[in-house]
Every structure is written in structure tokens, then in C-alpha cells.
Design a binder for these strands. Structure first.
Length: 795
RNA sequence: GCUCGCGUGGCGGAAUGGUAGACGCACCAGACUCAAAAUCUGGCGAGGUUAAACUCAUGUGGGUUCAAGUCCCACUGCGAGCACCA
């Protein structure tokens, strides 16, 4: 039988015997191993899927053999734009194409031979799941964590439709190429910012890659500073700015409001109205990319109004400019051109006053942003930065015109999508009662099937009268539904909570079950989700905890990112570059175990790298070699010292490395053991062969299952325990160590592990080559690192 | 611009501060074969030597240390993320 036939045979058997079933009532320690679920696309699995799912499966299988009760589910993140786009193009309904794709992918995943328990499958686009996604929305709404406000969307003026971020390609509509503008619409948000501090602080205790923690940390963007209130001269109005440099307040020579700031229209003088209005319009037309480009020259207009600097009562002009962002801080700044590069550029361009308040630098040339002694600063004079900041914070609070505060770059999460293929937002609008949440007993709000989703500027659901028209749950009068659907990231923010209790129809999950099963012990997926999915899931977990639905703080205790498999040319694989490699041809030729094996052996798991054909052949050769060695099995019970030692060393190496996701060195250890075994041509004692198969079982699940049967053992190798090592047997009776003179290797000596330091020194000094290097020299000292090295320092 | 990560043979990649290059690919030689493939055995960083010795070598330059691929500083190249965040 060839590999392909072997794999088919065992996959069938595994399924029939429910080999991969999770033991719900087992007393063994649970271990929740999860790979990020995938979008069910029509295309076949790509190498990235194999690398993620196949390799992670080896780890899960290993843990099962180590005696853990491994929970290893799989599902599909099935709502989203691609199915909708496909529907627009072909007319095939998303529910049909999606379910078809899921079936295809299930088959494909089956070919990997993963140990998933499909009884716990979760598919986010099915009503029995999205009912609870809607329920999540209602809980967030109930706890003031969901709210509605005006926010800009990407709008294509030519297609007359809202575009998703993915549909905006460098500022232009992906379909027609027109420049995308921003248009304000009323949309739903989740208040993730309420959790900014905890999301930041919680990172410290997570077993996550440092770089991922840093990405989230930067994304959350905590910034300590102060609010400062500015009165608008000759009016009763005022506004607040945020600054991290309150110590430079004496140098604030003008203020800038974001063009969208609410106060702009109220304070602009008649003479300036026209220019201000024009500027606001232009700003709204610009794409985010244009607007936030740092290379762009500063622009702005004067409002005609003045603010009063609270520390010295100076009148300073108020401008508007798009370098001030409405969405950060308060949407308004105090400008200190002497000590801020952006303010400096702006002041130079518009001839605004520049007053230095800190010594240092040369403000004729550029802003000085460093520390130094304060000057021109009244009560702050002669203080350094941190002293001046403290003093200013006190002054602001005493004079009731500001206070110390903290802001975050993290914004609230916009969850409204003007799309069809997503979970409906369970909200009803009633003329009499206003915004009314759908009562929980009425969930799910079913996504209607008969919907016209050709883009024409409206949310598709808006055109479905049978969906839109409803009655108000409070007054019973006529009402309309929310037409937007939820961002698919909402669906994926809690799917890991659903897996352990996926059939529950009374609640999203049973509290006791998930408190027992969560958090996820090992989560494996791409780094591209660092600031989206992984952050949203943490937010959901914390919010649900605070609502009392679960009692843990973090969803994913330990996280691993697989690297990226690149094309043979070292570039990212893409259809347009023509450097894509399909796993299928390799699976057809060598089988799933060989492909999985190469993915584990040929790369450092977290790095990935370019694909090569040569590598995969080498794994095929290795497995054939294993088969030959297994066929040399004998029935002797004799212990062979060399094999005994090699075996125990190998077990130790694998057990150490596999938990670090170093699959390449695990396989190389098995190769070394195999090389040792191959010295014995016939009648290799059974024990050494059985251990070889067991060691390899998580790495090559089909081949080892077959070999296990071949040598007459009973089904299944995957129910066996992973070999354990005896530390004593890993120790060498004698080791060869290097001897250095002044740090340079000059010879080798052989010692045994119990040898005294004196004896080792003597051996080292008596080595012929060492003698040459030490004769006529004074020996300053001899460093002996047991079992490693000897270094003789001479003068 | 800021932040982070990385730089080791022809290649993929190993190396708790302790004999750099494990394991594998490619290559070379030998065995088996009529031959090839497969398989088995051996070699394989560069220079040097009959062979040794020895010298050089982990992007570059410094430093710490008895000892540095590994720690520190500077530079450089590549990659990723953020990007007017006040």
C-alpha cells in the first residue's frame, strides 16, 4: 500500500471508531488546543492552512499521548464579504456557496489527518450560532458597552455605495477606481476603550510572543498628560485640549481644532466663514491616507476667534487644521511651536509666534523637543521637565482649568457593516419608543434569504421589506429594524467560548462548562490578528466576565504564531506573482504525513520561509528508511546499551523541544535515533522499534498507525502513552570535552562524569598539544566547566 | 519618522555565555548493479599542510568576560508593525 491508501484507510477507521472524541467526563487534566478557524473559501486549502493546522495538530496529538484530555475543535468563520461579492458576481446565494465551501473544506481538512473532534464544530453563519452573536450584542447594549454615533464610512461616489476597508485599494474603489471619500453615517460601536487599561495591563501575564504584546501595547497607545481648558475670548464658550507637555503651556501661542470639531462653526467669525467651510469640505473629501501622510505640507485656516491661555491670559488665535485628528484626545490641541515639530512647521508656514520655554536646541532651525531648564514660564522657570509637569498639574487643578489625565490611541470598535452576509444587529427603531433592543426571547433575528444585494447605495437589508418592517416590542406599533449587520470580527470574538458547549440552545454556553474548559491553553494562528481578533476576543472575555457569565480574565493563556511559507522565490505567495505552491500535488504524490513532516522539519515554525521541492523528498526518504528499519524487528528482549542511551536522549530532546514548538529539532532527534538503529541490520529488539513508532506517532499519524499494526500491535498507536525518559540513562559514561588555552581550542580530553576536577586538570595539562601551548608559560588559572570545557589561562 | 525583530556554510537550519555549523538537502568519492534508479559507507566552512600544526570565520566596528553567534554600545542591510496620536 502506498501512503495515500494508508492515509485513506486510517482516516476512515479513526472516524468509525471516534478515535478523536473528546472525553467529556474524563478525570484527566484538560488541555484546550485551538487553531484560529478559517474562512470557508471555494479554493482548496493552501500551504498556510497546512502549516497552521497540520503542525499544531502534531502538538495536540503529542499532548494527548502525554495523558492530557485534549480538547481540539474546529469550525468556520463563515460570514463575510467574499461570499457576498461572489453572490453579486454569480447570483449564487451566500448561504449556498458558503455551505458548499464548508463541505469542501471539511473534506480537505480530513485529508490532513488532524485530530479534531468534529462533534464540537461551530459555524458562525448558522442561526444556531448567530442567535448568540446577537445575544452578545444585546448584553453589551444592556451594559452600556454598545452605542450608536455618527462616524465616517468609506463611500464610493461613483458606485454610490459604502465600501469595506478591504475594498479600498490605496484610496480608490476596488471596483471602479474612483477616489473614495468619507461620509458620515450613524453607526454602532462597542466601547472597548472602557477596557483599555485592563487590556494593556493584562498583557504582562500572558504567555504570548513578546512582539505580539508590543503590537497590542502600541495599538492601545497609552499616553499620560493633561486636559487644559481654554476659554474662547469674548464668549462664554470654551474647549479642552489634551497635551503630554503641560509644562510648555507658557509657550502655547495658538490653538488648533480638528476641522470636524463641534465648536468650529460656533466660533468662526463671519469674515472667516467661507474659508473655514471650504477647508472643512476639502478635508472631508480626503482619504485617510492623504490626510495622515506625514510628508504632506501643513494646511489650515484661521477661524477669526481667539482663545485665552489660562496661565498668562494671553489671547492666542484659534485655527483649524487636518493635522489635528478629531478622534484622538479631545480633537483640539494647544500649539507650542518651539517644542513640537508639527506645531513648528505649521507656525513657520503661517507666520505664527514661536516662544521658547525650554533651554536647548536652536529654534531658528527646528523645534526642540527634549528636556531642559524652563524659561519664559512664570512659576515654572528654572525647573526641569518632570518638575515642571508636576507643578503644572497641581496648578491646573488648583485653578480649575485642567487636570492630569491619560488617553489611549485605542478607539471604540465600529461594528456596523452596510453589508448583507453578516449577523443582523438586533435593534428596532420605533417612532414612539426610539431605539429598542430586540427581546432575547425573539432571537435570532433571522437573516432573510430573499435579498437584493446588488450594490446601489443602500444596505442590502433595507430593500427587504419583510425584514425591515416589524412591530415595536414595547408599544406594538409599526417599527423598522436596523439594516446594518455586524462586523465578522464580532462572530470570531467569542467562538472559542462556544466550542465546548456548541449544541446548547438555551444559552450561548453553560457557565460551569466553560469555566472548566477555558481559557484556551494553546492558541495557534497568524500574527496578522494581533490588533484585531486577539484584542477583540480579550475585550469580549473581560466584558462577559464583568457581566457574570464567566470567571476568567483572559481567553488565550498561551499563544503561538506560525511563520509564513513563502514561494520558492522568497516572495509572499500570490496568484498574481505566479509563485503559489499548492499542497495538493505534494499530498497526491507523497501523502499528508510527508507534507506535514516537511513543514515541521524544513522550517523554524515561527519563522516560516521559502518553499523548496528538495526538502519534501528528504522527508519521504526518511519515512521509507523508518519503514525499512521497522521491518528489521526481532523478538529479543535484550537491552542494547547504545540503543538504550540513544533512545532516552531522543525522548528527552523531543519532550523539551516540542513544547517550544521546535518541531524541526524534534524530527532531527528522531533521525539521529533512526541512524543509530540502522547500524543494527536484523533482529532489533522489539522495544526499540516500538519506541521509534511511538516517538514518531504525533508527527506522522497515518504512517505510524500502519507500522504499529504491521508489527502486530493493537489499534491505536494514538491511544498509547508517549515514551518517557530516565534521566540516568541519558548520561554518557564518558564524554570528550575541549581544552582551551586562553580561550582557543587546543585539544580534547575524554573524561567520565564523576571525575574530580583535579583529575580533569591533570588530563588537560598532560595532553600533548596543550603541553606545547603551556610550556614555558605561567599558568594563571584553570577553569573547569564539568562536562563542557576546560580553559587554561596562561601568561 | 517612531517601535520591534532578524543577519550563521552552496541551501533549509542547529547551538541553557562553554569544542560553531546538530539534523537534512545539494555536491564528491566508494560499495552494490551489465547499467541506471533506489540503497549502503565515507567526505564536505575558507586558507594551509603529504599529514599535522596553525590561521581566518556567525553583517561591520568597538566593549564586557577565563570564554561571545549568544550580553552591552555604535553602524549597516533586510523584514514587520504603527504612522501628524498632541
Amino acid at each position: 500500500m502506498n501512503n495515500i491508501e494508508i492515509e485513506k484507510k486510517w482516516q476512515k477507521r479513526w472516524q468509525e471508531t471516534k478515535l478523536n472524541s473528546f472525553e467529556k467526563n474524563s478525570s484527566k487534566e484538560k488541555l484546550y488546543c485551538l487553531e484560529m478557524f478559517s474562512y470557508p473559501s471555494a479554493a482548496k486549502l493552501h500551504l498556510g492552512h497546512w502549516y497552521n493546522f497540520g503542525v499544531a495538530d502534531t502538538w495536540a496529538r503529542y499532548k494527548k499521548m502525554c495523558g492530557y484530555n485534549v480538547f481540539h475543535p474546529m469550525g468556520f468563520d463563515a460570514f463575510g464579504l467574499p461570499a457576498e461579492n461572489y453572490a453579486i458576481k454569480t447570483g449564487v446565494h451566500p448561504s449556498i456557496s458558503t455551505e458548499k465551501n464548508i463541505a469542501t473544506m471539511e473534506t480537505q481538512l480530513g485529508r490532513i489527518g488532524g485530530s479534531w473532534d468534529w462533534d464540537y464544530e461551530v459555524v458562525t453563519c448558522r442561526p444556531e450560532y448567530y442567535k448568540w452573536t446577537e445575544w452578545m450584542f444585546l448584553q453589551l447594549y444592556k451594559h452600556n458597552l454598545a452605542y450608536k454615533k455618527e462616524a465616517p464610512v468609506n463611500w464610493c461616489p461613483s458606485c454610490n455605495t459604502v465600501l469595506a476597508n478591504e475594498q479600498v485599494i490605496s484610496g480608490a474603489c476596488e471596483r471602479c477606481g474612483s477616489t473614495v471619500i468619507r461620509k458620515k453615517m450613524s453607526q454602532w460601536f462597542f466601547k472597548i476603550t472602557d477596557y483599555a487599561e485592563e487590556l494593556l495591563a493584562g498583557l504582562d501575564n500572558l504567555d504570548w510572543p513578546e512582539k505580539t504584546k508590543i503590537l497590542q501595547k502600541n495599538w492601545i497607545g497609552k499616553s499620560n498628560g493633561a486636559y487644559v481648558d481654554f476659554k474662547v475670548a469674548d464668549t462664554s464658550k470654551s474647549f479642552t485640549v489634551f497635551t503630554t507637555r503641560a509644562d510648555t503651556l507658557f509657550g502655547a501661542t495658538y490653538c488648533v481644532l480638528a476641522p470636524e470639531h463641534d465648536l468650529v462653526n460656533e466660533i468662526t467669525t463671519d469674515e472667516c466663514k467661507e474659508a473655514v467651510k471650504k477647508y472643512q469640505e476639502e478635508a472631508s473629501k480626503q482619504s485617510d491616507i492623504e490626510r495622515t501622510s506625514t510628508v504632506k505640507e501643513k494646511t489650515g485656516v484661521f477661524t477669526g476667534a481667539y482663545a485665552i491661555n489660562p496661565v498668562n491670559n494671553t489671547k492666542i488665535p484659534i485655527w483649524i487644521s487636518d493635522y489635528v485628528l478629531a478622534s484622538y484626545g479631545t480633537g483640539a490641541i494647544m500649539a507650542v511651536p518651539a517644542h513640537d515639530e508639527r506645531d513648528y512647521d505649521f507656525a513657520k508656514k503661517f507666520n505664527l509666534e514661536i516662544i521658547p520655554v525650554i533651554e536647548g536646541g536652536n529654534i531658528e532651525i527646528e523645534a526642540y523637543t527634549g528636556d531642559g531648564t524652563h524659561i519664559n514660564s512664570g512659576f515654572l522657570n528654572n525647573l526641569n521637565k518632570s518638575e515642571a509637569l508636576d507643578k503644572m498639574y497641581s496648578w491646573l487643578e488648583e485653578n480649575k482649568c485642567g487636570k492630569k489625565t491619560t488617553t489611549y490611541k485605542l478607539r471604540d470598535w465600529l461594528v456596523s457593516r452596510q453589508r448583507y452576509w453578516g449577523a443582523p444587529i438586533p435593534i428596532i427603531y420605533c417612532d414612539k419608543c426610539g431605539t429598542v433592543p430586540v427581546p432575547e426571547k425573539d432571537l435570532p433575528v433571522m437573516l432573510p434569504m430573499d435579498v437584493e444585494f446588488t450594490p446601489d447605495g443602500e444596505s442590502p437589508l433595507k430593500k427587504c421589506a419583510s425584514f425591515m418592517n416589524t412591530t415595536c416590542p414595547i408599544c406594538g406599533g409599526p417599527a423598522t429594524r436596523e439594516a446594518d449587520t455586524l462586523d465578522t470580527f464580532v462572530c470570531s470574538s467569542w467562538y472559542f467560548l462556544r466550542y465546548p458547549d456548541n449544541l446548547n440552545s438555551n444559552e450561548p454556553f453553560n457557565k460551569d462548562i466553560i469555566n472548566k474548559m477555558l481559557p484556551v491553553d494553546k492558541y495557534i494562528g497568524g500574527v496578522e490578528h494581533a490588533c484585531m481578533h486577539l484584542l477583540y476576543a480579550r475585550f469580549f472575555t473581560k466584558a462577559l466576565r464583568d457581566m457574570g457569565y464567566l470567571n476568567f480574565d483572559e481567553p488565550f493563556k498561551s499563544l503561538v504564531h506560525q511563520g509564513t511559507i513563502l514561494g520558492p522565490d522568497g516572495e509572499k505567495m500570490s496568484k498574481s506573482k505566479g509563485n503559489s505552491v499548492s499542497p495538493d500535488e505534494y499530498v497526491d504524490e507523497y501523502g499528508a504525513d510527508v507534507l506535514r513532516g516537511y513543514l515541521m522539519f524544513g522550517f523554524n515554525y515561527v519563522d516560516g520561509g521559502p518553499w523548496t521541492d528538495d526538502g519534501i523528498k528528504s522527508i519521504n526518504k526518511f519515512y521509507q528508511r523508518v519503514e525499512r528499519i521497522v521491518s528489521n524487528i526481532g523478538e529479543s528482549k535484550e537491552e542494547i546499551p547504545e540503543l538504550e542511551k540513544s533512545l532516552h536522549k531522543t525522548i528527552k530532546k523531543i519532550r523539551t523541544d516540542i513544547d517550544k514548538f521546535q518541531f524541526n529539532t524534534c524530527i532531527s532527534a528522531i533521525m539521529e535515533y533512526t541512524n543509530t538503529l540502522s547500524k543494527y541490520k536484523t533482529d532489533i529488539p522489539r522495544k526499540y522499534i516500538e519506541n521509534l513508532i511511538l516517538l514518531l506517532a504525533p508527527f506522522a499519524p497515518h504512517i505510524t498507525e500502519e507500522l504499529w499494526e504491521t508489527i502486530g500491535n493493537s489499534y491505536s498507536v494514538h491511544n498509547e502513552s508517549y515514551p518517557e525518559y530516565d534521566e540516568a540513562k541519558t548520561k554518557d559514561d564518558e564524554v570528550t570535552i575541549g581544552v582551551q588555552v586562553n580561550g582557543k581550542l587546543r585539544g580534547e580530553i575524554t573524561i567520565n562524569p564523576n571525575e574530580t576536577e583535579e583529575s580533569i586538570k591533570e588530563k588537560a595539562l598532560n595532553n600533548e598539544n596543550i603541553k606545547r601551548h603551556t610550556e614555558n608559560k605561567e599558568i594563571v588559572k584553570i577553569i573547569v566547566i564539568k562536562g563542557k570545557i576546560v580553559n587554561i589561562v596562561v601568561k
